[in-house]
Design a protein around this nucleic acid. Structure first.
Lengths: 209, 209
DNA sequence: ACGCCTAACTAACGCCTGTTAGGTTAACAA
DNA sequence: TTGTTAACCTAACAGGCGTTAGTTAGGCGT
């Protein structure tokens, strides 16, 4: 008799999505539907709880989206830094740059709802939330500038490149992938190779072969 | 005495923003604030009319945003096509590609609220509105594919480039500029030159000089 | 057994949204 | 002078929003 009285028994004892669970779901929904279309009630429903309950974990919707944005940058930053740190000290500049590009694209397309959510909704959130995310962003940008500066100094890159512009162009290009990438048409890794080829050598047929 | 009783005399007799005026203002607001943050009441206020009055010109908010999206593509398409059509028939491939890049970037950054609004809000509007915009989009994409295919055939481009991928990468890169471009740091034309340099020749320092 | 803590629930608040129906005004034509 | 029409206004609708206050239920330490 106790058997069929079990209602909603699919969750682990006491569901317990918790703060992290809510955040995971929010990141996924933000990535899929954008900022404006995702209400607290939608997040709550996807998490299996009621809208008001979210306020046990977060103080406001802004706090949720701010947490998602920050995590997004931290994930891709860690991914990119690890990728270039793991290389041997004598690795040539071109290989290092290729590794950084691949790491960024992987984090964006394969790994993290947080990173893709960040790229997708950053332009849609209130100014105050954007501002709060800026320090984390600047740290990641500084990592890229540091890498590119080193590659310029050691002669890997042309001497007339503008570091800031190149970084904006690179990250902008990689992030734009999110609008059209389809894993059925090719992996993120293969795509990152194409990107690197174009950026490093250009698309012009050369006479000198 | 008639002097200071003139209230709101700046508009032509009976204001008459009209359908086109409303559309212009909607495009500007969408570009500045995104789709979700711009309500019909905001558009109406900026146009100097009341929210309900918008329904004299448009059947729904979707109809407004759809009109903005379509105009955005048509403007940049016309700009790009004109730029490459104006060139003499014997112009070399590299120059043609540079002209196309410059035209796209100009439409996006200098000319049109419609084009920049399109790029900014396309990912935020309802699916049905996106779908309605697709044919116009496809036509512009076909123009680029046609140009790139020709450049590949005549030997300007490397023979191993994937046209579709290259087009997605190119347009994605140019559009991403919208997120960070600051006219005080350099003109759109100067930027388009940098873009073309990178895409055509790459950023790697070459041995063969 | 008691009380505390965590994680949820219910119900409502004021506000803003897109949208509709019906009324008003000014310019122009006959 | 009257009729017509384009362009707007007013007032309200239902529904969704973020947010708040107060309540409830289960698990753990003492």
């Amino acid at each position: 008799m106790a058997q069929n009285t079990a209602i909603k028994a699919n969750e682990t004892s006491r569901s317990a999505v918790g703060r992290d669970g809510v955040l995971d779901i929010a990141a996924r929904l933000f990535r899929e539907q954008g900022y404006g279309s995702v209400s607290l009630r939608k997040i709550a429903e996807a998490a299996g709880i009621k809208a008001g309950s979210i306020y046990y974990h977060f103080g406001s919707k802004d706090e949720i989206v701010a947490a998602v944005l920050d995590a997004g940058i931290r994930v891709v930053h860690a991914s990119m830094r690890d990728a270039i740190t793991d290389l041997r000290a004598d690795t040539d500049g071109e290989t290092v740059l290729r590794a950084a590009i691949r790491a960024h694209l992987r984090a964006l397309l394969d790994v993290s709802d947080y990173t893709s959510a960040n790229v997708r909704i950053f332009g849609q959130v209130p100014q105050s939330v954007r501002d709060a995310n800026l320090p984390t962003r600047r740290a990641y940008e500084a990592e890229w500038d540091s890498l590119l500066s080193q590659l310029k100094k050691d002669g890997t890159l042309k001497q007339d490149v503008d570091i800031r512009r190149l970084r904006l162009m690179l990250i902008g290009t990689l992030n734009a992938t999110l609008d059209w990438f389809d894993p059925d048409r090719g992996s993120a890794d293969a795509l990152s190779r194409t990107y690197a080829d174009v950026f490093l050598n250009g698309i012009l047929q050369r006479q000198d072969t």
